[in-house]
Amino acid sequence: MNRELPPAYRRLRELTNARIALGTAGSSLGTRELLAFQYDWARARDAVYYELDFGALKARIEELGYPCAEVASAADSREIYLRRPDLGRQLAEGENQRLEGMEGAPWDVSIVVTDGLSGLAVAENAVPLIQAFGRLAAGEGLSLAPIVLARQGRVAIGDPIGAGLGAKLVVVLIGERPGLSAADSLGAYLTYGPRPGITDAERNCLSNIRDGGQAPEVAANTMMYLVKGALRVGLTGVSLKDESQLLEQGEPGIEGY
């Protein structure tokens, strides 16, 4: 027999996105709620194993007028990628040759796009974010390196790429770990002076970039704000967060990394 919930109880659901005031059978979860959970879980799982179409992504970015290069991390399958984060942080052997001839003098910003833990997030959000950010960068007179698409990458794969391209700052756009409430969140990690071996404390991060979260067009503004700050003071990380008045006021979706 199902437990009846009076209106005052059911109203709690309007106060949070958490799964509360759920229908029950005895003390157990009711069928409707059970299947609703499984649906959200299934979407998250599918996002982890989503095969990003790099060819199509490259074509869309080139259509915006940006040259693109494709590289692969040292993790050559999804299974290895999940178990060996160290390999996802490195370029596969010989892949740095694909960046030859693209070095800047130096470039202000290098954008690296990688599937991370949600190829879906990249497929949905990377192109509008690049489009909006590219427009802002042109307005600011910042030079953009050719955009690098990296297969099976972690955040730190931007370090050898940014270093190889000779960029002052690298922005890695990466699919975040899918949760049940969102399977398509993109993260943007900024690292000034990219080089292999840099620590996560020297990065800044914008997270939850997606429709229904921080829309890509809005995120582009925040990203530009951070990029300009980083180029001005010559660093990213906790110190940049401290430098920034806006960030001290607790701008949501920004964390020191």
């Binding site: 949070t16 799964r19 759920l22 003390s27 157990s28 959970f37 770990r177 949760g179 049940l180 409430s181």
Partner: peptide
């Protein structure tokens, strides 16, 4: 955890219903 789904930390745990089970 409400519905076993932590909407802040983004992982799944056990729910009130699991405790009562």
């Amino acid at each position: 955890v409400p519905g076993a789904d932590d909407i802040m930390l983004g992982y799944q745990s056990t729910s009130f219903h699991d405790v009562n089970y």
